[in-house]
């Protein structure tokens, strides 16, 4: 349905969006690259000249680097594991006939709409506080010693908070995927005498594999850059400093822009690697 007229119109109408996004991508990207090759300390002398790959080397060799990579991997991996496992189970449960399914769905989806600053603060103070938190009451109730969540178990605490936020997302998407499963297929396998467990392994799980991949990739992208959850809880202390939080500290707290920018470039490369996989999957979907 394309004539020259409509193609010209289409180009004009796409121009604003394309231009804006191009600017939004290129300008900061080029600036980040530029700074990453400079010694640049805004509060301590400003632009101190080109330093080549110095920042890149220093960023990686700093003592904070590897712990931050580990912390990032633990948080991302932990949250993914929890949300996907529980997400699959919850989705299957929610797909069963029951009373008040709509309400249960609303209850389960709710955490996703809570802004990260709120959920982090609520969890940190009202649940994980060693003196007054509900969890310490619970521990005491069972006669256990309350945990100093934020200082003794910073990473698990953050994983719990973030998983709570993302579990609804995983559940909702997996539930949608399950509901698209052809019920005849399930019935046929039931006729064939497949047990519940076998049906799960051989029919439901393969059917969900695509949705799981999507959840995995989308969450990874968001999780790699979690910020508020650390900012308002530990502030990066107690081994909970992720890669992106480290970069944030380098740039804004210690005002070492060159070093932070080099870190930023690493983060961009990392995110792009994940993104390429996501694009593949989404791209395939565009074809049909």
């Amino acid at each position: 349905m394309a004539t020259q007229h409509s193609r010209t119109a289409a180009r004009i109408m796409m121009a604003p969006a394309v231009t804006l996004l191009l600017g939004w991508m290129l300008v900061p990207l080029i600036m980040t690259l530029y700074f990453s090759f400079k010694k640049y300390l805004p509060l301590r002398g400003g632009d101190l000249g080109w330093v080549g790959f110095d920042n890149y080397v220093r960023f990686v060799s700093s003592s904070a680097f590897w712990p931050s990579v580990t912390a990032t991997l633990i948080i991302v991996g932990g949250v993914l594991l929890i949300t996907i496992c529980f997400g699959v189970l919850l989705a299957i449960l929610l797909d069963q006939p029951m009373w008040g399914q709509g309400i249960v769905r609303i209850l389960i989806i709710a955490p996703f709409f809570v802004m990260p600053t709120v959920s982090s603060l609520v969890w940190k103070n009202m649940f994980m506080d060693p003196n007054y938190g509900l969890l310490s009451y619970l521990w005491e109730f069972f006669g256990a010693e309350p945990i100093q969540w934020m200082s003794q178990a910073a990473l698990p605490s953050i994983i719990i908070i973030v998983s709570w936020q993302w579990l609804p997302f995983a559940t909702l998407i997996l539930l949608t995927a399950i509901q698209s499963l052809d019920s005849e297929q399930l019935e046929a396998s039931e006729m064939d005498g497949a047990s519940t467990l076998r049906r799960f392994w051989h029919i439901i799980l393969p059917h969900l594999s695509r949705a799981i991949t999507v959840v995995l990739l989308i969450q990874t992208i968001f999780l790699l850059s979690i910020f508020a959850e650390i900012f308002v809880t530990t502030g990066g202390a107690f081994g909970s400093k992720t890669l992106s939080y480290l970069i944030f500290q380098r740039v804004l707290e210690s005002q070492n822009v060159g070093l932070g920018s080099a870190g930023g470039v690493y983060a961009i490369i990392l995110a792009n690697i994940v993104a390429i996989f996501l694009m593949r999957i989404v791209g395939k979907n565009l074809d049909n």
């Binding site: 300008v27 900061p28 980040t32 850059s225 970069i247 870190g263 983060a267 995110a271 989404v282």
Partner: peptide
């Protein structure tokens, strides 16, 4: 184009924080 647009969404914010801050 659609793919590229989506990919801008994946640019980690922290990577470009300072330039934006400066701008």
């Amino acid at each position: 184009i659609l793919m590229w647009m989506l990919s801008t969404k994946m640019l980690p914010a922290v990577g470009v924080l300072y330039p934006i801050y400066l701008l």
